[in-house]
Design a protein around this nucleic acid. Sequence first.
RNA 1: GUCCCCAUCGUCUAGCUGGCCUAGGACACCGCUCUUUCAAGGCGGCGACACGGGUUCAAAUCCCGUUGGGGAUGCCA
Length: 480
Amino acid sequence: METVRVRFAPSPTGELHIGGLRTALFNYLYARRHGGVFILRIEDTDRTRYVPEAELRLMEMLKWAGIAPDEGPQVGGPHGPYHQSERLPMYRQAAEELMAKGLAYPCYCSSETLDQMRQQQQARGMPTRYDGRCRKLTPDDRKRLDDKGLTPVVRMVLPDREERMVVKDLIRGNVAFNTSQLDDQVLLKSDGFPTYHLAVVVDDHAMEITHVLRAEEWLPSTPKHLLLYRYLGWEPPQYAHLPLLLNDDRSKMSKRKGDVSVEAYQAKGYLPEALVNFIALLGWSPGDDREVFTLEELVQEFSIERINKTGAVFNRDKLDWMNQQYMSRLPVERLVALARPFFPDLSVLERNHDLVVRAAGVVQPSLVTLADLPSQLELFLKDPQAPLAPEVDQTLAKDEVRRLAGSMATHLGAVNPWGAKGFQEAMKTVQKETGLKGRDLWIPARMVITRAGEGPELPLVVEALGRDLTLERIRQAAQG
RNA sequence: GUCCCCAUCGUCUAGCUGGCCUAGGACACCGCUCUUUCAAGGCGGCGACACGGGUUCAAAUCCCGUUGGGGAUGCCA
C-alpha cells in the first residue's frame, strides 16, 4: 500500500484559526495513524492579504500544539519548495499546458465588467457565472488586447456537454454536482499568481498527496479540482471534508463572537494538550465514553470513519473543564514553570520558589487556566503592608480577634512537627482557651493567617505557608 | 436566487450493518453531600431522536417529502 501523505495548507493572512488547528490536527493524526507523512504547505498566493509575521507564528503554534510537520518550510523535504509563491513556474506551466490543449483560455474582462455581469444575473434570478465571452476571442483579438497593455487572467474551460461530477468523499459518501453549475474558474490571476484551485491541484499532485482532509467549505469547489485533475491527466487524491466549527449561533466560527485564534487561547492560559484534546472531540469521537486522551492515544484511536458530518459548536465551558482536567494532572513544578508568563512580578516567584510550589499544590485542583495561578497564590505571598479588604480590616481590629491571635501564637508556636494535623490539634487548645468556636473561631483565624475571607482549607494553607510565615502573620495580627 | 451539505438533551456526542434504547456518556444548569469559608471532589436530578409520510412483525436507526440550519456561489483562501 502506498504511503499516506497528507498536508495542512494554510494561507498566512493572520493568526492561526482554531478551525485551522483542528484541520491540521486531523491531518496529523491520520498521517501518524498510518505511518504517513504530514506536510505543511504555505498558500501565500494572495499578496493583498499577506501578513509577513503570520507564517512564523503559525508554525510556532503547530509546534506548541505538538503537531509539527514532517515536511514544510522549516524542516524542508523532497517535495519543496513549500511556499506556493516559490512554485510559480509550475502553475504557469500547468496553465500553458491547459491552454495548449484548449482547456483554458485568457480572459481580459475587468473586475468591473464581472461585477456588472454578476449583478445582472442576480437581478434575473440566474446563477452568477462567467458567461464565457472571452472564450470566443480570436488570436487577433488577443493580440490587440495585449497590445493595449491588458494582462489577462487564465480561465479553465468547462466540458461542452453537461456532465455529472461525483466527489467520492470519505465522510459524506458520493456527492454529485452538475458541470452546468460550475464556472469558468480563474486559474491564473493577472499578477501571475495562481488561484487556490490551480495551485491546490498542481501542488497536491506534485507533492504526491494521497488524502485531502480539509474543511467542508471546500466541498462545492471539489468538482472543479476533479476536472483539473482530468484535464492534466493526473490521479486525484481521496477527499474527506471535515464538519465546520461553529459559533454559538451555528454560523461558521469566526471572530466577532469570541476568540478564534490559537494564540488567544495560549495567551489565556490554556494548555496545548487540553486544547488539542478538546478540538479532537469536535467532529470526531472514539465511540466510547472516554474523553481525556493524550496525543499518542488520539493517534491510536483516530479514524476517518468516526468523523461525523454535523458542524460542531465550539463550547468554551467544556474547554474550561478539559483544561482543568489537564491542569490538575500536571506535576506541580511543571505547573509553576508553565504559569510563569502569567505572573506580573517574576521576582516574587523567584524569591519564594519553594513556598510557591507548595502553595500551587494546594490551589491546583481549582485552577481552570494557567492564568488563574497568580491570583490564587496571592494569599500565600501577600505583602504584609498591602491594604486589606474592609471586612478583614474590621475583623482584625477587634480586641477579641487580637486575643485570638495571641492564643494562636502561643499554641501554634509549640506545634511539632509543623503540618495540617498539628495545626488542627493546636486549634482545639485555642478554642478552649478563647471560648470561640464554629464560625466565630474559624473565620477570624483564617483572616489572621491569610488576611482574606476565603480560600483553600486553612490547615492546608498553614502547612504550605510554613511555621515562620504563619507565626509572623499571627504575631502581626496580635499586635494589631 | 442557484447548487451542495447537515438534522439525537442548551452544547459536544454514543447510537452507524433496524429489535439489547422506557435513547447512554460528558459539559453547563439545579439539588444534596464533603468542607466550621470559596472552589474543587462525591452523589443525584433536569434534559433530545425537527415534522409528516412510507418500508417492516419491529425505526432514532432504511426510503421519500416538508421544515429548519449551514456552506458555496471572488483575479480570497
